[in-house]
Write a protein that binds this DNA or RNA. Structure first.
Length: 575
RNA sequence: CGGGACGUAGCGCAGCUUGGUAGCGCACCUGAUUUGGGAUCAGGUGGUCGCAGGUUCAAAUCCUGUCGUCCCGACCA
């Protein structure tokens, strides 16, 4: 490719709308342009990288016995009504109707379409397992698209759906995908980590998210400093210290605590440490009023709580609702004396002694509260958020926290969709059985953005070799007519590299050298070959590595061999 | 969906308070000089000031509505 013909309009300034590095650099390097909020055009350089990522995905999927197919973007409402998600999915489902007024939606994911297909075509255990994948545009009418490709309304995603005879088969599919994902992100040159994740409303019994570690990540990760334990902060657990408190239980008393509505007020006023307090939070879980009881220094993990309650909607109860059920103002709620209200007690609470909690009476708290003695505990669960510095549940080392970009997630679906969509087969005994499903997604654009978030400097992108849009740029320093030998030498190198199937760009533009260097750094070619008069006089060119800044002076006749050697360097990093 | 902000040339912005018919930098075009890290000088192209109403002799500027975009939060199979 000649730079003079390449469609890659680079920008000197950062577009005002781009907030994070990957978005800024994708815009500045002329790779991406916005068409509407959350909807983008992938320009030639970006599309080359996208295709490379997709090719890596394809190779690993095919290797794991999966077959690629193409599914429609437009789905009839009937399929979604059949699974029940037409109602459940909400406003994020991008709905439309045709000229006859029939309802359709743009597929945000393809369980319905593919399960329906498989249900129609697969009849016998002999045809299983079946693993089908697609890489295509998907649509979610996000409330708030953001961060460029990170959260778009139209995005390219690979989804694989596995259909197995039984749970055992699913385990095998899942294991294969876990390995395939590890291979894919490693090959993409990413520093990533698989973490245990929440299944969300999709149900099922296990899920992993593949997280690219980056400060700008939207997701929190808790991982062990010593063993392999790693989990999304949504589901992370910590070691539970079951040592009973050896304090002698004191007499429970009501004390006046004027205007102490928060744990902070309370600890200051009574001079107690927050871990000796009990906090009681009031929630509205669908139509049910529930209490979450937790140590004062902890934070409720609403995902865990929601999963425990099995509700669809979970919100903090309003003051009026609290008043109605407890006759206590918010801020003075406590578990003592509460009757006929479901109460989920965090599993740490029973180990407290002589704690402080709300008295269900304005301006009063109770001291020397002892769980079990002073209030009955019927339901304990882990409902709290784990923080950095806590103890690993697996090996008791210290837990650390990090931010991550979720680039992939694998789910065991079970029979949720095979049941609703009627995906059954006959087993060896002629007995009808439900297929056991799994689904496995990778955000392709998000993977590209994540690669940038992890590989950039002040000058621009630093592509990992495997997904760089091009490997090499050849830059003749001068285009002066009186120094034609530079352009000649550069053109020869360019042609020789092309002949060797190296993906190379010749920067033949009539630009000053500074402009070419700046663009080369911005676009992030892994190698830059500079042809200048000084080195050319010695029969050499300069080869600069974008990632390290290392410079090599190489004889003209050795350049191609040198470059090929550099390109073959293993890029694998990751875990 | 709640809160906040913005919309003026391809990009980044000023002008708006105090109404008088639009400006700066970059980019782009022409010429000259320049050429190892986003050149200099001279000349030039390009804008119904998001859109629609209203007030006014007169609206980018004031008022109302509307659309779009971004940020924070909520949400995220």
């Amino acid at each position: 490719m000649r730079a003079s013909q390449m469609f890659a309009p680079t920008l000197r300034e950062i577009p005002a709308e781009a907030e994070i590095v990957s978005h800024q650099l994708l815009m500045r390097s002329g790779m991406l342009r916005k068409v509407a909020s959350g909807v983008y055009t992938y320009m030639p350089l970006a599309w080359r990288t996208m295709k490379k990522i997709m090719d890596i995905i394809r190779e690993e999927m095919d290797k794991a016995g999966c077959q690629e197919l193409m599914l429609p973007v437009v789905h009839p409402a009937e399929l979604w009504q059949q699974s029940g998600r037409w109602q459940v999915y909400g406003d994020e489902l991008w709905r439309l109707h045709d000229r006859h007024g029939r309802d359709f939606c743009l597929g945000p994911t393809h369980e319905e379409v593919i399960t329906d297909l498989v249900a129609r075509e697969i009849k016998s255990y002999k045809q299983l397992p079946l693993r089908l994948y697609q890489i295509q545009n998907k649509y979610r009418d996000e409330r708030r698209p953001r961060f460029g490709l990170m959260r778009g309304r139209e995005f390219i995603m690979k989804d694989m759906y596995s259909f197995d005879r039984d749970q055992e088969g699913l385990e095998e599919s899942y294991r294969l995908m876990y390995q395939a994902y590890t291979n894919i992100f490693t090959r993409c040159g990413l520093d990533f980590r698989p973490v245990v994740a929440d299944n969300g409303a999709i149900g099922g019994d296990a899920s992993h998210e593949f997280m690219v570690l980056a400060e700008s990540g939207e997701a929190g990760i808790i991982y062990c400093s010593s063993c392999s334990y790693a989990a999304s902060s949504e589901v992370a657990e910590a070691y539970l210290d079951r040592t009973p408190c050896n304090e002698i239980p004191g007499e429970m008393k009501e004390v006046e605590t004027p205007h102490c509505k928060t744990i902070e007020d309370l600890t200051r006023f009574l001079n107690v440490s927050p871990e000796k307090t009990i906090k009681t939070l009031c929630y509205q879980a669908d139509d049910q009023f529930v209490l979450a009881v937790i140590r004062g220094d902890r934070t409720v993990n609403e995902i865990k709580l929601k999963n425990r309650l099995g509700c669809l909607e979970l919100t903090m109860a309003s003051d009026e609702v609290i008043k109605k059920y407890l006759d206590s103002p918010a801020g003075y709620v406590g578990p003592v004396g509460v009757k006929n209200i479901r109460m989920i007690v965090d599993r740490e609470v029973p180990f407290l002694a002589n704690a402080v909690c709300g008295a269900n009476k304005e301006h009063y708290h109770l001291i020397n509260v002892n769980p079990d003695r002073d209030f009955s505990i019927e339901e304990t669960a882990d409902i709290r958020l784990v923080e950095e510095g806590e103890i690993c549940p697996e090996c008791r080392a210290k837990l650390l926290s990090a931010r991550g970009i979720e680039v992939g997630q694998i789910f065991k679906l079970g029979t949720k969709y095979s049941e609703s969509m009627g995906a059954k087969y006959l087993d060896e005994n002629g007995k009808e059985q439900l297929m056991v499903m799994g689904c496995y997604g990778i955000g392709v654009g998000r993977t590209m953005a994540a690669a940038i978030e992890q590989n950039y400097d002040a000058d621009g992108i630093i592509w990992p070799m495997a997904i760089a849009p091009y490997h090499v740029v050849v830059v003749p320093v001068s285009d002066r007519d009186r120094e034609p030998e530079q352009m000649q030498a550069a053109t020869k190198i360019y042609q020789d590299l092309l002949a060797q199937k190296v993906e190379v760009v010749l920067d033949d533009r009539k630009e000053r050298p500074g402009v070419k260097f700046k663009d080369a750094d911005l676009i992030g070619y892994p190698l830059r070959i500079t042809v200048g008069s000084k080195t050319l006089a010695e029969g050499k060119v300069e080869v600069k590595m974008r990632a390290t800044g290392d410079v090599h002076y190489v004889e003209l006749d050795r350049v191609v061999a040198f470059v090929k050697e550099k390109l073959n360097l293993p890029e694998e990093r990751g875990f």
